[in-house]
Design a protein around this nucleic acid. Structure first.
Length: 419
RNA sequence: GUGGGUGUAGCUCAGCUGGUAGAGCACCGGGUUGUGAUCCCGGUUGUCGCGGGUUCGAGCCCCGUCACUCACCCCA
């Protein structure tokens, strides 16, 4: 093999690629029923858009972006996430001046320069949804419920929804300094990285996986205790709506998000069988993002569901969709004349909406029948010189083995009737 | 970016203390010159990840490198 795909970039081939499509379809179907419109977005954007929107100091921006210069010396970046680009597009089209909320969805590849491991690739696929122009907590609940519905419709039963609130910016600032002072005497000096986190983003310390850190921070003060009245009311309302909608969730006050734009509601769908990369979908509210990228005040909430990781979850639970047969009717032509006739009949059947195929290549009867069998077709049509002279095809039911001659002129309607 | 594990046929893997590659599945053909899924017989496929080194001799030992994988970290 001369070439392999770039590091951390997966290929999906059948049958797995079909499963991937099914996952994407299951995620988007509920959105369309809920009035979300489709957004087709660029795969790369101005580097500064992500730096501003996602946050200069986030790991995603500071060390995980695929950034390059174009021939005009513009700095461009392969999108590491979809929300910022979606907001940019909404503002660019002036949708925020129309009917609100604007509800949109998109799908496609995202790129992050990471160390690959299971569930973490440098190119991965997401389906995203965004609702802008309203801070109604019912909208938060609607979006969460739509994701929940998508996962359920795929047959996943073990996914756990973690729910939290980050409060308003002032709540978070207050809490951060409280937490910082609390952490210093307990885990300060542990190592350089932890010290840095205590200063820059103390919430992240609570997310440390090391058991000794977990133990030391077990009774740390929680953000939920520092919420202002408006953020608290919003959160309680979201929880109430979710309960009304029958969406089970787990209050997780330690939930940490890595992108700077999140406010108030945040959530993650976690799958317990996926190892270290167990978040298969996540999102939250981002009421200040529009201003950050130069727009007017425009509240918003959204999520992104990981298509690749969701497929891993389906495989872990053993609930993959069945592979549909590749054909319903399969032609077995004997000789060149029969093949030409078969090709025409196959095309005719396909136009009639029947999934039809034939044995290509110079295969013998046995090989062609074998191909028919493997296609999963219900019926094989054997066509040889004898049959052509008689103007018929031998239609064989591959499940029962019974066979009957059918006039070629009646073949298409006959098969349509049989199926 | 850091640390551990693994790279042998299309796939899953075996290969002893170094003696110049195997199985199962898959695929193709035949048994049945016009009938699949079962059965029987036969056949194809490898620069043993790549590059160097040690040795009379390396799939096996050493060094480097790349990829995959797991964890940290990060996140969908």
């Amino acid at each position: 093999m001369g070439f392999a795909a770039p590091k951390g970039v997966p290929d999906y081939v059948p049958p797995r690629s079909e499963h991937l499509l099914a996952v994407r379809e299951a995620m988007t179907a509920p959105l369309r029923l809920a009035g979300y419109g489709y957004l087709e977005l660029p795969v790369f954007e101005d580097t500064a858009l992500f730096a501003r929107g996602v946050g200069e100091t986030t790991d995603v921006v500071s060390k995980e972006m695929f950034t390059f210069s174009d021939r005009g010396d513009r700095s461009l970046t392969l999108r590491p996430e979809g929300t910022v680009g979606a907001v940019r597009a909404v503002l660019g089209a002036g949708l925020e001046r129309g009917a609100l909320p604007v509800k949109l969805w998109y799908a496609g590849p995202m790129f992050r320069y990471e160390q690959p491991q299971s569930g973490r690739q440098r190119q991965f696929s997401q389906v995203g949804a965004e609702a802008l122009g309203s801070d109604d907590p019912a909208l938060d609940a609607e979006l969460v419920a739509l994701a929940d519905h998508a996962y359920r419709s795929l047959g996943l039963t073990r996914t756990v929804l973690h729910l939290a609130t980050l409060g308003d910016p002032s709540d978070r600032t207050d809490y951060s300094s409280t937490l910082r002072e609390w952490l210093k005497p307990r885990v300060g000096g542990l190592d350089r990285e932890t010290d840095r986190r205590i200063e820059r983003n103390p919430l992240r310390v609570l997310d440390d996986k090391r058991p000794e850190v977990q133990a030391a921070t077990a009774d740390a003060p929680l953000l939920t205790e520092h919420l202002g009245p408006r953020a608290r009311a919003h959160h309680e309302s979201v929880r109430g709506h979710l309960t009304d909608l029958g969406v089970p969730f787990l209050d997780d006050p330690r939930l940490v998000r890595g992108l700077d734009y999140y406010r108030r509601t945040t959530f993650e769908f976690v799958h317990p069988q996926l190892g270290a990369q167990s978040t298969i979908g996540a999102g939250g509210r981002y009421d200040g993002l529009s201003e950050t990228v130069g727009g007017p005040p425009l509240p918003g909430i959204g999520w992104a569901l990981g298509v690749d990781r969701t497929l891993l979850a389906l495989e872990a639970e053993g609930v993959l969709p069945h592979d549909p047969p590749r054909a319903q009717v399969f032609f077995v032509p004997l000789g060149g004349v029969a093949k030409a006739r078969s090709l025409a009949l196959v095309a005719q059947l396909r136009r009639a909406g029947v999934c039809a195929d034939l044995a290509y290549g110079e295969r013998g009867m046995k090989g062609a029948m074998k191909a028919a069998d493997r296609s999963g077709a219900h019926y094989a049509v054997v066509l040889g010189d004898r049959d052509l002279e008689a103007g018929v095809g031998q239609v064989k039911d591959l499940r029962t083995g019974s066979q009957q001659a059918v006039a070629l002129d009646d073949l298409v309607p006959t098969l349509e009737g049989l199926l």
